[in-house]
């Protein structure tokens, strides 16, 4: 019988990574239903450390689901969250280790003054959707704790800590 090898880990950043988050969200339908309608399309832009082209995706949410992951080019978005790969990695590492972002690495904290991650938008109405759906967006990214993924250099996020402590204390 031929040996079955484990599927290769997802890569971050990649479309597959966000597609996997989309699947994980689908599996958590009840949790996201409890958080309420979630209607926005926003972009994520991960700048390359070596000055190369950024990775860009548009995430489309409707009702309680992520209904689309696509290339950002040409997509009309409410806002775009952008930042260097290192900032995204720090957020994802924390989520992977703790099961969810701690208070120092929530999307709100990271974008607060635009130091680590920045929010770009044309219309304040679109921007305000980042706030209107803040907890749903946070919990969407928190689902990455369940994914098996690797960064471009082959390194992995830290394994989940036995005792997950999400406060920054």
């Amino acid at each position: 019988m031929p040996a079955v090898s484990a599927p290769p880990p997802l890569r971050f950043p990649s479309r597959d990574f966000f597609e996997a988050l989309r699947e994980a969200m689908r599996a958590e339908r009840e949790r996201f239903s409890r958080l309420g309608f979630f209607d926005t399309t926003f972009g994520v832009r991960i700048s390359s450390d070596d000055g190369g082209e950024p990775a860009e995706f548009a995430l489309r949410f409707e009702v309680f689901d992520c209904v689309g992951v696509e290339s950002l080019a040409g997509v009309e978005t409410d806002f775009v969250v952008e930042g260097p790969f290192a900032a995204w990695r720090e957020m994802l590492d924390t989520i992977h280790a703790l099961g969810a972002a701690d208070t120092a690495h929530s999307l709100n904290t990271l974008t607060h003054f635009g130091e680590q991650l920045r929010v770009r938008y044309d219309d304040p109405d679109g921007h305000d959707k980042l706030y209107r759906f803040a907890e749903s967006i946070q919990e969407f990214f928190d689902l990455s704790a369940r994914l098996d993924f690797a960064y471009p250099d082959g390194s992995r996020p830290p394994a989940a800590r036995a005792e997950r402590q999400r406060s920054a204390r």
Binding site: A100, T103, S106, N108, T109, H112, Y131, A134, R166, S167, A168, R169
Partner: peptide, 13 residues
Amino acid sequence: RAIAALAETRADR
């Protein structure tokens, strides 16, 4: 937003 950003506990965030 500021309180969420300054929170030290999940409850406050």
